[in-house]
């Protein structure tokens, strides 16, 4: 009879055992804020479809301190999502070759963050323009 008896170690709590995995779980956790914010917007959209009074009621509800606190946390979490999304991008996208040289990781991340900043400012400018 074989004396082999390979031992399989349990995976319990693996994400707590390495700072790299802790960070991974944190950036995965930003999804809860993305979901919650989408839910807030969805409620807003439904209220919009129900008429002016409903919409104004929704707008007013957003001034509650709880909502403001939530949006402050969501802003932090989703900004962190933006950062980590473009940080991992050099690993997730096919290589980009410019002038015979492969684009370094920092250039891909930097470009992504710059585009995100431009998109954000563009959106703000659009809403600003719509308001006047």
């Amino acid at each position: 009879m074989s004396k082999r008896r390979p031992y399989v170690r349990p995976m319990d709590g693996w994400w707590r055992k390495n700072p790299y995995f802790v960070e991974y779980m944190i950036h995965e956790g930003t999804a809860f804020f993305v979901a919650a914010y989408a839910a807030v917007l969805l409620v807003g959209l439904v209220r919009l479809s129900q008429g002016e009074a409903a919409w104004n009621g929704w707008l007013h509800s957003l001034t509650s301190p709880w909502y403001v606190l939530f949006h402050l946390a969501a802003l932090l979490a989703i900004t962190y999502h933006t950062y980590t999304w473009f940080k991992i991008m050099p690993r997730t996208m096919p290589p980009v070759v410019v002038g015979g040289e492969r684009l370094p990781a920092w250039a891909i991340t930097g470009t992504g963050l710059a585009v995100a900043a431009a998109a954000g400012i563009g959106l703000l400018a659009f809403v600003w323009g719509m308001a006047r």
Partner: peptide, 9 residues
């Protein structure tokens, strides 16, 4: 969400 999320919030 990476592009527009923070500004939308």
């Amino acid at each position: 969400s990476a592009l527009f999320g923070p500004m939308l919030v």
